[in-house]
Design a binder for these strands. Structure first.
Lengths: 145, 145
DNA sequence: ATAACTGCAAAACTTTTGCAGGAGT
DNA sequence: ACTCCTGCAAAAGTTTTGCAGTTAT
């Protein structure tokens, strides 16, 4: 469970101000406990009579992403999705056949991250990945047929 | 180098018709030899007095992607980028600050792919990735200030 | 006090769609 | 001939921006 209190400390520590809107946006993301797009957050806040302008939502998602409090992912829905960066980075292996999802050890990505840092001087953001493919069970079915 | 001839055979074989516009779009993508967005292709064709309507470019990119002649990637520029499939697999490092894009050696991902296969029995699809983060130049600016 | 932030409205952008005519097989 | 494809124009949808006023530090 994520503590809104701690998140707001992070916000302050990042040099950003703790505003009503910022707090509400992060609260919504915590409650949703997963990915959400700007429009979805805006709609949710409106439902709770906690109006925050859509442009403010966009500006905040960008700002919070820049200071690494949020991570941004494109799930091919046609809009950007955001998520609170947790204590431990988590990743998922998603089976394209059966939809089964399993967690992926962060170490698998870390090794690649180190290589990228060393060879390219590029600091990769590996907070949250979804890797698509075929799970063991579906591969077995495939080779059986 | 990619042969336009062979590409058009693929087009026909996929059940699509070989039209002037389709050919020009694929030719442009071959010449650009890399990823390009719809607008960029459209602009390039216009420069060469080979007018193809922008909506036609979009419709073709989608159709060619659906039959796997093109691959689609989001490089975080705000638009979709397309590329001819069949080249050696390669990936992109995209700077979240300045938008700069550099190529990433497939070997870096391959090692991770092997680990995932070995440890999870999961067959990951690692054809074409975009990894976001901070490029060397932007990291230098950050540590400077 | 001062710099950051917000709401509002309008615009910028990419991408999609309806339709009538044109082109490939 | 039979579909598929294209151009045109208009719209849909997401995201950005200018600006004046408000708020956090």
């Amino acid at each position: 469970m994520l503590s809104l209190q701690k998140l707001m400390d992070q916000v302050r520590h990042a040099g950003l101000r703790v505003t009503r809107q910022r707090t509400l946006i992060l609260q919504a993301l915590c409650e949703l406990d997963g990915h959400a797009g700007a429009e979805e957050i805006h709609r949710r806040l409106a439902l709770h009579q906690r109006d925050v302008d859509l442009s403010t939502v966009y500006r905040n998602l960008e700002a919070l992403r820049d200071v690494r409090i949020l991570s941004q992912t494109d799930l091919g829905h046609g809009w950007a999705e955001f998520e609170v960066v947790g204590d431990r980075p988590h990743h998922h292996l998603v089976c394209q056949r059966c939809g089964h999802v399993q967690e992926l050890d962060h170490a698998c990505l870390d090794a690649m991250g180190d290589t990228i840092r060393d060879r390219y001087g590029f600091e990769p953001i590996l907070d949250h990945w979804a890797i698509f493919g075929l799970c063991a069970a579906c591969r077995a079915v495939d080779s059986g047929t």
